[in-house]
Design a protein around this nucleic acid. Sequence first.
RNA 1: GGGGCUAUGGUCUAGUGGUUAUGACGUCGCCCUUACACGGCGAAUAUCCCCGGUUCAAAUCCGGGUAGCCCCACCA
Length: 761
Amino acid sequence: MPNPRLSEKRWKISKEKEIAEKWQAENLYAKPTIKGKLFVIDTPPPYASGRWHMGGAIHYSQIDMIARYWRMAHGNTWFPLGIDRNGLPIEGRVEKDYKLKAHDTPRGKFLELCKTTLDKYENNIRDVMTLMGLSVDWSEPYRTDSPDYRTLTQSTFIELWKKGLIYEATKPNNWCPGCQTTLADAEVEHKTVHSHLVYLKFQLKEGGTIMIATSRPELLAACQAIIVHPDDEKYKEYQGKTAIIPIFNREILITPRQEAKTDFGTGAMMVCSYGDVNDVNLFRDMKLTETIVIDKAGKMNKLAGKYQGQFNLKARKNIIEDLKSEGFVEKIEEIEHDIPICWRSKDALELISLPEFYLKQMEFTEKIRELSDEIIFHPSWMKRPLIDWIDAVSQDWPISRRRFYGTPVPIFYCPDHGAWVPETGKYYESWDLVLPCPECGKDSKGDKRVLDTWMDSSVSALKVSQYDKDKEFFDKAFPVFLRPQAKDIIRTWLFYSLLRVYQITGEKAFEHVWISGHVTDTHGKKMSKSIGNVLYPETFVEKYGADAVRFQGAAETKLGADIRVNEERIRGAKKFVQKLYNVARFISMFEKPLTEDDSLLKSSDKWILSELSKVIKKSIEGYEEMDMFIPATEIRNFVWDTFAPHYIELVKTRAYDGDQGAIITLNLVLKALLKLLAPIIPFMTDAVYRELYGESVHTQKIPIVEIEEEHPTERLKAFNEKVWGAKKEKGISLKEKIELDVPLELKLYESDLIAMHHLKK
RNA sequence: GGGGCUAUGGUCUAGUGGUUAUGACGUCGCCCUUACACGGCGAAUAUCCCCGGUUCAAAUCCGGGUAGCCCCACCA
């Protein structure tokens, strides 16, 4: 056996590290210089508030596959990186890690702790990204908490303020008692809880009683009306009468309103500030006076009388007891209903009125729907959740947060001239800053609040396209080629990005949007620390290599579906990487062919090349749809089911004899396979390509279809299987001779078949 | 209450009108055939969720269910 040029018998996964370093040294993934259209990827800036698990590793590997393919197929691709560092998650992490409360800690000190903690997690993310072989350009990562990035956020704020799209208003909004801040609707999740529906008798001033059902009896003190449906015969005579609130003995009016449903509870409903959004609307429409009885910590305030100081759940329990003992309770039903909770802390939300800044979005929803029709979604049905959310948007976006680690609201207050905004293009640490009023020069203090972190990340498309830095680059890069992201942030990151970028540029932010499912554990369960099913990438990379982890990430499920991490499958992927290496090693035994002259090719050679052409075509189609499942499985099946067992066996003898046709073909196929798989398994393919062909595979062009001929592939395979079966049946070894005729339709390949099977006539 | 996705051998999965229904893992035989035993050859294992319909023909199209996951929605 001749010496293979690939000397190592096995592919050593420890080589992945060397290769990654080589990529760095050669600066392979640098920002393209400007010529023609630029393909910029609006990489999701990972949030640096915790150790990265398999979810991040696989998600970003998939994005990397798109980036690598696009670079090889279309050139001019830039895969930058940002790190998201603003907002609640890091504050929560710091409060937990250091066992303190942000509101009780000096602001400067707290911000410093956030920074250090962020750096720690950011390093972990970078390590994992390097480990996974991401082809990001590390040279200029942006951080959303850097003065540079925050300048962009503030400048866009100032622009929109001047356009009149931002205003301050006091209206009831989602309040998280745990995080001590207002939240946007997009940050609200729902949870089903067991609760009680309490039927209460209200005395009427005019005599008699009316019964209402409520799940929030602790809000009785805030009750301002009872409504009944205008057509409800049961309550016709009650309309306009006055009821007396139990315990608090305040008088309220019974009013007919369409909103009351005759078939729920008793048909009569109390309206309090604020049990839910329905109440908010009724207060507004009926011009009721709001009475807030729950404070910002979630405790009852002094308006709640004897219940003051109790958390609302506790107060609810107590008031039910009191109502019972005073004979107001008719009955109590067990119910299940959904309550709004905070996306971060999972605390139950209250509706509280506070002055906040709002960004107008109601008047833009129609436009965003139109823009979304101009964007190609991968997969197409993922547009649905976005449209659903657009339809669900019901109020403007509250963008100010009563928190600390965020971009400060760039608003200053002159004692004489009121709120004003400074010039764009600079960073303002407003909470710690006093500026002279542009009108009168008087000291103007900055606002103490910060912006919703989505105000920062929603302009990432502008950041990566150099909107604020490089006009020439921006013109070539905008709208941004691709927004890849996970499905759980459609209503936040995707929606807000489309909104904000449109408000600034008047255009769609992206040409393509690629949305992936969740990465789950082996059983399809979301990974979570409390369940204890969290898997970390380092373990798998160490055992099977990043190539194998990536391959399973590509070959596991189709576009948009959830991805299950499965160790068995990663092991299977490792086998495939090894199999391909073995094929390459076999081919490397023969001297590199001097020409690629196709007049030297035999029928068998043309057969495998036309099979290869089909695989290339299908793979490219898959890659263009950004669905790596297609190339991964197509190529895998081709290598394992066609190329290795049939073609290689067919031409082995010829190749050992030094036949150029066979050797040229083997190399052509190998090169094509390495290139086609390079986006998915970048390490092994690069090592082999460099060793055999002297260049990096990642700087190659994706191959195009070369030969298309009709060949009886299935019959060829069937014949081989027939011979193997026959030898097996006779109990003879494969190298023994056997008497069999080559069928007529396979005459073209007769000489190879005879040599392969040791046929005799 | 509305919507999306999914439903195929023990497990996972391919398959958008005609196939002996793919492949992987696992199981069971046989084999170190000069790239590969992390391999090769072969075997067993499927009422293609249920009920109707369209069609010469349905896993595949249509209607209606059921189950799981997810999203949206003010049932007090």
